[in-house]
Write a protein that binds this DNA or RNA. Structure first.
Ligand code: SF4
Ligand code: SF4
Lengths: 162, 162
DNA sequence: CGAAACAGGACTGAAATGGTCCGATTTAGG
DNA sequence: CCTAAATCGGACCATTTCAGTCCTGTTTCG
């Protein structure tokens, strides 16, 4: 139920990498793909879609590449992942990409579903990418791993503590 | 990314219905299936699995059926849905049903993923079914819809309000 | 003994997913 | 002006997952 598509994962990777670029700098798909060790053609598609979603800017031609359209603090997890998730809603009755459910007005599960769905969406759209991936030091050649730091997720209070 | 499998949905339906049974009462699969308008054979499988998960008890023979093994307040959303979700984790590196990810120790996305995943799991396992489906009046023949009441989900504070 | 229920495996069709390939267009640099 | 390298974007394919059906047992009430 929670699994992200590979495209989403690649999108998050890309946005993370774009996040620690110097201002005005750009990075090309082949470079990105090699750094993260992921299929270049697929990443290319992902980037196109990110552009269409307005999250990144692109420049064509040799020495072209991508850059963030706005800082990671202004991109939510939902923004980043939304374009790649076919089934973003819990059930057909609360999903944008489905023609709904004919039982919707005769289903005692509908209201709870809708409520939970709305809550989850709210969570994911109040989580900025900057929070999610606490952007860390520059990329070492071939390996982008960085020392562990507690993310802001871990500091979010659980509902039962509220 | 959030979509539940049909089995999960059916499981939630079933547990909801079992929830407003009188003590000692049981209900059979064909009856349940007809009430909710869902395929009986599939629901049968779901019930078997719920039994294996220890959430319900069954009795065989004619006039057999299912009943809750414990009250809805003692069953979490994750309990109910877990057995039916192949891919419960956000990514391969944090999923029980996958052999992990070879890049796990060289991926700057791993730690954020793990953190978010843990947080989401915690959310789903602190949400009891009783909270989720604020169990409502008995089932009218052929239609189980009931008047709307605010669920406890809607009263959960958003992180940004905490 | 027979009808009705649970138990459970085998199987199928359809759809989503992850990935590849190829041709077209743009553009910096020699 | 020409070429290499990059973004575009459609077509295509293999694999897996999903939802659903079917069929054969076994239990148990009346
Ligand atoms: S209305 Fe009920 S059955 Fe239809 S999708 Fe929503 S929850 Fe599932
Ligand atoms: S380690 Fe990185 S690449 Fe591997 S699954 Fe986790 S997030 Fe995806």
């Amino acid at each position: 139920m929670l699994k992200l598509s590979k495209k989403s994962e690649y999108a998050l990777m890309a946005l993370q990498s774009l996040g620690n670029l110097a201002a005005g700098e750009r990075i090309a798909v082949p470079m990105l793909a090699e750094q993260r060790g992921i299929p270049k053609d697929l990443l290319a598609k992902v980037m196109q879609q990110l552009k269409r979603a307005g999250l990144v800017h692109s420049s064509q031609g040799v020495s072209g590449g991508y850059a963030l359209a706005r800082p990671l603090t202004a991109i939510t997890f939902l923004d980043a992942v939304g374009p790649f998730e076919e089934a973003l809603g819990l059930a057909p009755c609360v999903d944008r990409n489905s023609e709904g459910c004919d039982r919707a007005d005769c289903c005692s599960l509908h209201d709870p579903m809708e409520a939970l769905n709305r809550w989850l969406m709210a969570q994911l759209s109040t989580l900025s990418l900057a929070e999610f991936v606490a952007a860390r030091p520059p990329v070492v050649h071939g390996c982008v791993k960085a020392p562990r730091q507690p993310t802001s997720m871990e500091r979010r209070p659980l509902p039962c503590e509220a």
